Computed example of a mutant assay.
Amino acid sequence: MRNPGTAKFAIGQIVRHRLFPFRGVIFDVDPVFNNTEEWWNAIPEHMRPHKDQPFYHLLAENDETEYVAYVSEQNLLVDESGEPVRHPQLREYFDGYDSSKRTYRPRGRPHH
């Protein structure tokens, strides 16, 4: 296992869930689990990820809706669809979509 805090994915990157049918763009990263015990205990015990890994905040979407998700690194994969995310809060966090890199540009960072 890697050292806690070494994130595999980056802010602006589009990912999908390994088990469930949703995808999203990362807008924040916690180096280790940083949510409530109530949230943690709501996950079925046989599916609970380890707490000592990065957890990602996603502007997520599925076929029906958009929402914010909190997902462990072990449950994420790179989204290879090439499609942008449709989440209505994108403009709060990102300046635009770079289709050549398949990532979003975080607000306040230089554009190259």
Rank of each mutant, 00 (worst) to 15 (best):
N41M: 12
F9M: 01
V78Q: 03
L77D: 11
H57E: 06
D95V: 01
L76F: 04
F27T: 06
E45H: 05
H112Y: 12
T103V: 15
K51V: 08
E64Q: 09
G12N: 13
Y56T: 09
R23P: 10
T6R: 06
D30G: 02
N34T: 00
R18Q: 14
N3R: 15
R102A: 15
R109T: 15
F33D: 04
S72L: 05
D79I: 12
A7T: 10
E66D: 10
V15N: 10
L58N: 10
H46F: 01
K8N: 11
W40E: 12
Y93K: 02
M47F: 08
H46R: 08
S81Q: 11
T103Y: 07
R102E: 13
M47H: 11
E80N: 13
Y93A: 07
I26W: 01
F33I: 01
V85A: 08
D28F: 01
P4G: 13
N75R: 11
K8S: 14
E73H: 04
Q13E: 15
D98Q: 09
K101S: 11
P31G: 09
P110E: 11
E83M: 06
Y56R: 04
Y93T: 09
H46C: 06
A7Y: 00
P21W: 01
L76W: 07
N3G: 14
Y93C: 03
R16D: 06
P84L: 02
E45R: 13
A60V: 04
S81N: 06
V29M: 02
W40Q: 09
P110A: 08
W40R: 10
W39M: 05
P21K: 02
E92Q: 07
K101G: 02
F20A: 14
H50R: 14
W40A: 13
E38I: 00
H87I: 04
E38G: 00
F55W: 15
P49A: 14
R107Y: 02
F20T: 07
R107Q: 14
F55Q: 07
R109Y: 12
F22N: 08
P54W: 03
Y97N: 05
P4D: 13
R2I: 10
E80V: 06
V29Y: 03
I26Q: 05
R105A: 14
L77T: 12
S99Y: 08
P49L: 04
G108R: 09
R16A: 15
L90D: 07
I14D: 01
V29D: 02
D28C: 01
E73P: 03
Q89F: 03
G108W: 05
F22D: 09
A10H: 13
G24M: 13
H46I: 12
E37H: 01
T6A: 09
E64G: 09
H17W: 00
E37R: 13
Y104W: 14
V78N: 03
G12D: 07
P44V: 02
N62C: 08
F22G: 09
H112T: 09
D79Q: 05
M47Y: 13
P106T: 10
F94Q: 03
I43C: 07
P106E: 08
N75T: 03
Q13P: 00
R48S: 13
E45K: 12
D98M: 06
T6D: 13
N3D: 15
Q53K: 07
H57V: 03
W40G: 02
K51E: 12
H17E: 05
R109N: 12
F22I: 04
E80Y: 04
V71M: 04
R86Y: 03
A10D: 15
R48A: 11
D30K: 09
P88N: 13
A10S: 15
E83N: 10
